[in-house]
Simulated scan of single mutants.
Amino acid sequence: MIQRLRFAWAYRDFVMSSILNEQRIRFAGSKLGGVWMLLHPLLEVSMYALILSSLMASRLKGLSGPFSYAIYLTAGSMAWSLFSEIINRCLSVFTANAHLLKKISFPAMCLPLIISGSALVSNLLLLAAVTAIFGLVGHLPSLQMLFVPLLIVATLTLALGIGLILGTLNVFMRDIGQIMPVVLQFAFWFTPIVYPIDVIPQPYRWIYQFNPMFQIVSAYQDVLVFHRMPALSGVLVVLLVGIVLITLAVLLYSRAKPEIVDML
């Protein structure tokens, strides 16, 4: 593992240039350019808020005002967008880069770093935009914002661990790449993003403890919406699970690398 990280560090210039180049290509030829990176998630949040605001706003304990539901929805969506983008891109991380993996000197560790770096840039720009918008509507940031870096790291780690395992398996079972978007859509609704956890009957709430993104999304909402300290024990458990999954992903790829190259 340490050796792989050293190889990746040696290719740091390649990783950074790939992240920047990816951002340029993503919006090449677009009049608004990188603004679309912010508009897409904000428009999606606006759509949900427009439809569900009247139903859900009254159920938000400790939050009031005309923009209360939109603020709540935006906070949870930020965590989910980072998580889902990394997983979706990791699904094809090996199949889409077969030409690079067949080069013996190229460390495969660079590929997930490029994916996570690109997703992180988008998410940080979105965070800056959302913080500014919150401020304009009177919902000013608090000192609890200092926990956001920890939440981002936990989200990245979990998403990379899951994504790399699925990406490796997808080389051999391409159905995984087809079914995972459906699974992620189900997981989205199984996470209290669009609705508060209070709408779930008390006897069934224990089920949510098996969803690691419940801990992350709840922590984002605590910090960005309710201005209170997040449940760090849950976040640290998710971080530990992510580290274990990344270690398993590296071991799985190492064992399967010869077969992966042949399959590609």
Rank of each mutant, 00 (worst) to 15 (best):
L127H: 13
A129L: 14
A129F: 15
A129K: 12
V130D: 08
F134R: 13
L136K: 06
V137C: 14
H139F: 12
L140G: 07
P141V: 07
P149E: 10
L150W: 04
A154K: 08
A154I: 03
T157M: 09
I162A: 01
L164Q: 04
G167I: 04
G167M: 00
L169I: 04
V171P: 02
F172T: 05
F172G: 02
M173E: 10
R174N: 02
I176G: 02
Q178A: 09
Q178C: 01
Q178N: 12
I179F: 09
M180Y: 09
P181S: 03
V183H: 05
A187I: 02
F188L: 11
W189H: 00
W189Y: 15
T191V: 10
V194D: 12
V194A: 12
I197H: 03
I197E: 14
I200G: 05
Q202L: 13
Y204R: 12
I207N: 03
P212V: 06
F214A: 12
F214P: 00
I216W: 07
I216D: 06
S218F: 06
Q221T: 08
L224F: 11
F226E: 09
R228I: 14
A231R: 01
L232M: 12
V235H: 02
L240V: 12
L240S: 09
V241N: 05
I243R: 02
V244P: 06
L248H: 04
L248V: 08
